[in-house]
Nucleic acid binder design. Sequence first.
DNA 1: GATAGTTGATATTTATAAATATCATGTTTA
DNA 2: TAAACATGATATTTATAAATATCAACTATC
Lengths: 143, 143
Amino acid sequence: MNSENNNPVYTISRAAELLGISIPTLRMYEKEGLIIPFKKESNQRCYSKADLERIKCIRETINGTKISIEGIKHLLSLVPCWKLKNCSRDERTVCEAFISYDKPCWMYSHKNNLCSEIPCISCEVYTNFSDCKKVKETIKSYL
Amino acid sequence: MNSENNNPVYTISRAAELLGISIPTLRMYEKEGLIIPFKKESNQRCYSKADLERIKCIRETINGTKISIEGIKHLLSLVPCWKLKNCSRDERTVCEAFISYDKPCWMYSHKNNLCSEIPCISCEVYTNFSDCKKVKETIKSYL
DNA sequence: GATAGTTGATATTTATAAATATCATGTTTA
DNA sequence: TAAACATGATATTTATAAATATCAACTATC
């Protein structure tokens, strides 16, 4: 929301320093699809304040609740993106994110559907769901 | 369904033998709420064929997908029991299972609501959900 | 009433996820 | 054009979940 918080201003070393973790850990979270940092043209990562908050939340889930990263990915695959984005019946039947249950929708490429219009990094489904607790709240809001 | 499969006929040692695991492991799965074995009056556990299948499924999830036990519990807490059981609006607002997101509904005591009428061991919510894959299918059936 | 198998609880071992270190190579910046 | 920092990839370490072993007390079976 706040453009201030979404400005990608921190290098990876500064982000690691602020979070008190190592650089390879940040890369690992990204590889696992838990975080999508902004990338410069040169391919260098840039983290925003919002990114740092997201990572703090992820680490709380990993180290606090003892859900494994694989568990978090499975949980996030249950976010009903098709509802949040008003995905049509026709579109969802061929959408990998709708079909699968092992990783969040933003880990798929979304070719040829409504999700190809904006990048996942700025999609509400990605930005709103770093906290696994929110998944049940969202499901309850529909059921 | 099939009463044959639900007959509690195996002792814990026989169940452990058939599954190729240790007795303490079976007790641990139970403590974690993943399995509810029948108990004799003397408090001794008795496992059915259906129980063994359920445990096989659980082990596949733990050892195959690398979702931790804690992750499985969180996933199973997303089963929309309130929909499956037609839980009223009034009842759900005070139901721990509806409110929480850290363990399946059958790990709660369900005092003073429609779930206190039958034991969880014979409830469809418990019996139908050993496979975490089914959770998304169920959510999709409603959304 | 003796043997075999159960109970819950605690202690220990084993397997592996999570995090880090290190690498040769490429990019930024002063 | 150096120095500092980035990249991806692989190897290693560390932390801990999962599984097992062991215990004294209790229950079943013959």
